[in-house]
Design a protein around this nucleic acid. Structure first.
Length: 366
DNA sequence: ACTAAGTCGGGTGCCTCCAA
DNA sequence: TTGGAGGCACCCGACTTAGT
């Protein structure tokens, strides 16, 4: 568990220092960013979503400002520093404005509202404010000056709300859903509970991920957002996460998914070293390896499917005694058999579980 | 026991737009 | 400029549950 440095926005974390950046300024920023949990769950208002690059930019600005929040409202950085971390910032030539991308991203961040409740002696107060305040760019010197609204700044320095986020990990994410989910789960990973978890209704998860009106089909949400995000977190972050579905009502597999439980587990030294090595790889290489893994998994599913078909066809054509013998074998292997398991129409209820064994031992062609 | 309803998994294809 | 990710809308089969 990281410990807070007095008055500073960063904590030391040995596992992350391995991937410290080369420049002096980046060394200052590498490590862990302390981010108020209230800001973890921000989302853009209106029709425009925050992009991955916007979230990275905000985290970067936050890291720059963190040591001085509470002391001063205005913070400074240099455009070259931002371009170093964000390849997107180098696209300027096509727009004829060397800071086009940056201005667009900053504008989107300024449109984001932060809303939260404050409990005080006079009861609960609802607060709504902009995530990012006034921003100026000096086109000659390349100096970027920015402000956080007072209320937001106050929450940024509220230790009880802090969540430690790894900048080195943040920089590596390629999925905006991975970054958002990481920010949420990090605070649970930081807790000292033996089995930390985040349990949320499906609508809450959609809100947090910024896809309330997108990916309406849960399987699309999982395939396009959750699975890639979890995979990326498990590869890069200092903790791993497993997701359980909470189902209710009628339908296959126990009904509709109404909620999700994300179980967080800290990685051991070996796993951390592996994550650091993965994070050190170029994104293109990581994406290539991820694609290979996905392809391998897809091929494995196809092979499994062919095994199931082969086993079912073979057993459907087999005599009663053969089906009975395989039913008994399945029971020995721990498979729960349905009533009248040997009936050809019931084979599909249990044969898929032991299809690989049937194919191997009966030497079936797949 | 049977049927209808509701849901998911896996797959495909198309379009848009982002990121390199 | 272009490959690929994201988003969306289908289809079909399988499965479970509720209702009759």
């Amino acid at each position: 568990m990281p410990s807070l440095e007095t008055g500073a926005g960063f904590v030391s974390e040995p596992s992350l220092s391995i991937v410290a950046t080369q420049t002096a300024r980046r060394k200052k920023l590498s490590g862990t960013l302390i981010k108020a949990t209230a800001l973890v769950e921000v989302r853009a208002t209106g029709n425009e979503d925050l992009r991955l690059s916007d979230r990275k930019l905000f985290n970067h600005l936050l890291a720059i400002a963190a040591p001085n929040i509470g002391k001063t409202t205005r913070h400074n950085t240099h455009l070259s520093d931002i371009r170093r971390f964000a390849a997107e910032a180098r696209d300027a030539a096509s727009h004829g404005d060397t800071n086009f991308w940056l201005k667009e991203s900053l504008t989107r961040l300024q449109k984001v509202l932060v809303q939260y409740d404050v409990l005080g002696s006079d009861g609960r107060t609802w607060v709504s404010d902009h995530l990012l305040g006034r921003v100026t760019i000096n086109e000659v010197t390349g100096e970027l000056t920015f402000e956080f609204p007072e209320e937001v700044a106050q929450r940024l320095v509220e230790p009880a709300l802090y969540s430690a986020l790894s900048l080195s990990v943040i920089y590596q994410f390629t999925s905006k859903y991975a970054l958002t989910l990481y920010e949420i789960l990090k605070r649970y990973a930081d807790r000292k509970a033996t089995e930390p978890y985040w349990s949320a209704k499906i609508d809450e998860v959609r809100d947090v991920l910024g896809c309330r009106d997108k990916l309406k089909d849960f399987k699309d949400l999982r395939k396009k957002a959750l699975d890639p995000a979890i995979q990326e977190i498990n590869e890069l972050a200092e903790f791993s996460v497993e997701m359980d579905e909470v189902r209710q009502g009628r339908g296959g597999n126990g009904g509709r998914v109404v909620g999700l439980v994300f179980r967080v587990r800290g990685k051991d030294v070996g796993e951390l070293e592996k994550a650091v090595k993965t994070a050190a790889k170029p994104k293109v290489q990581r994406q290539g390896e991820a694609a290979e893994k996905m392809a391998a998994a897809a091929e494995a599913r196809q092979i499994k499917q062919r095994s199931v078909i082969a086993a079912l066809r073979w057993l459907e054509a087999a005599d009663f005694n053969t089906r009975k013998a395989w039913a008994e074998r399945a029971a020995q292997l721990g498979v729960t058999l349905p009533a009248a398991a040997t009936a050809p129409t019931n084979l599909k209820k249990w044969v898929p579980t032991i299809a690989d064994t049937v194919v191997a031992e009966e030497k079936l062609q797949v």
